[in-house]
């Protein structure tokens, strides 16, 4: 029998449901001959070191987010550029798969001895805040926002002030006024309870999100029997369907939670969003391409691939 260990952090949640399903399917189809054991709570590795663990061969599978360490996985960060125009998780999956199968991306991850298996599609970030609700972009001027990396940079272009606060301190920081607003994916707003004190909530900014793939150790993958390889790869679509269903349940909870907490939903007019995209997306993209080309990453090609896939 073959047993794989998978390194995950946090508790079991929608974000890990594809792994749960994959583990279940693989065991079922192989009659228990191939097992994937899930280790939650960063028991095998801290999330920022999951790629190191894969590279070492300490475990066979892991989940990580590209934005935790841009220089470990420069190619994937194309998926974290602000304002790509993604609105659904299905689009997120399609884009991720396209980028994951590009040779440059595979070469990038092969440096860690890692094979990209599937994404953990994340919804677009939303901004939740206290104080007066922003109705136009100008209202972001001077607003202290908890947003890291590229999304933080994007908000900087409209005058907001990105502020360093850990996610576990976000609630405290928002309540006390250390920050005026927090940019998280919706489930993180739930998990870190920022929705409990937010007065408002942006619905349609769609500024971007993080990309969190599942990878396997290449040697371990190659060592699988052809049958097990087939079992593993053929189970991925069903695992992702299950993931989407579970995320749907999170969304079902979502509306009522906002309602219950009296959080005002802010719809920005399309013109404002276009203006934001213009001011943030273009410079961010250009800087990213320049930076990446300098590192030998075919950045323009990857970006064009994203645009093409999105328009398909």
């Amino acid at each position: 029998a073959t047993t794989w260990n998978a390194s995950l952090w946090g508790k079991r949640r929608a974000f890990t449901e594809h792994m749960e399903k994959l583990s279940e399917l693989v065991a079922q189809k192989s009659n228990g001959e191939f097992q994937i054991k899930l280790h939650y709570g960063a028991a095998l590795s801290k999330n920022r070191e999951n790629l190191d663990g894969i590279s070492i061969g300490a475990f066979e599978m892991a989940q990580f987010c590209a934005g935790y360490h841009r220089d470990k996985n420069p190619t994937i960060t194309v998926l974290e550029l602000p304002f790509l125009g993604v609105t659904t998780l299905e689009q997120e999956i399609k884009l991720s798969n396209a980028v994951y199968s590009h040779p440059a991306t595979q070469k990038d991850l092969a440096r860690w001895n890692a094979k990209l298996l599937m994404p953990s599609p994340m919804p677009q970030y939303n901004v939740a805040g206290t104080g007066a609700a922003p109705t136009s972009l100008a209202d972001f001027d001077g607003m202290r926002i908890r947003a890291t990396g590229g999304i933080g940079q994007a908000f900087k272009t409209v005058g907001a002030v990105p502020t360093s606060v850990t996610s576990s301190e976000a609630y405290n920081a928002l309540e006390s006024g250390v920050v005026d607003s927090v940019a998280f994916a919706p489930h993180a707003h739930l998990a870190f309870r920022t929705v409990d004190i937010a007065k408002w909530w942006t619905t349609n900014l769609n500024p971007g999100t993080v990309n969190c793939p599942i990878v396997a150790n290449i040697d371990s993958f190659e060592a699988l029997s052809d049958e097990n390889k087939e079992i593993l790869m053929s189970s991925i679509p069903e695992a992702l369907d299950h993931y989407l269903a579970k995320y749907g349940e999170v969304y079902d909870k979502w509306g009522p939670v906002l309602e219950e907490n009296g959080v005002q939903k802010i719809d920005f007019p399309q013109a404002e969003i276009d203006a934001f995209r213009e001011s943030a997306a273009t410079p961010a993209r250009e800087a990213w391409i320049k930076d990446m080309e300098a590192k030998g990453v075919p950045a323009q090609e990857l970006y064009d691939l994203v645009v093409k896939t999105l328009n398909e």
Binding site: R48, D52, S55, G67, Y68, H69, R70, D71, K72, P74, R111, W112, T148, G149, G152, P162, S164
Partner: peptide, 20 residues
């Protein structure tokens, strides 16, 4: 070796991408 991986393959911090 942990240092060497960060140096040769690359690694940086989450927010402002400082090399680690």
């Amino acid at each position: 070796l942990h240092f060497e991986r960060a140096l040769t393959i690359g690694d940086s911090t989450i927010d402002i991408a400082l090399p680690t």
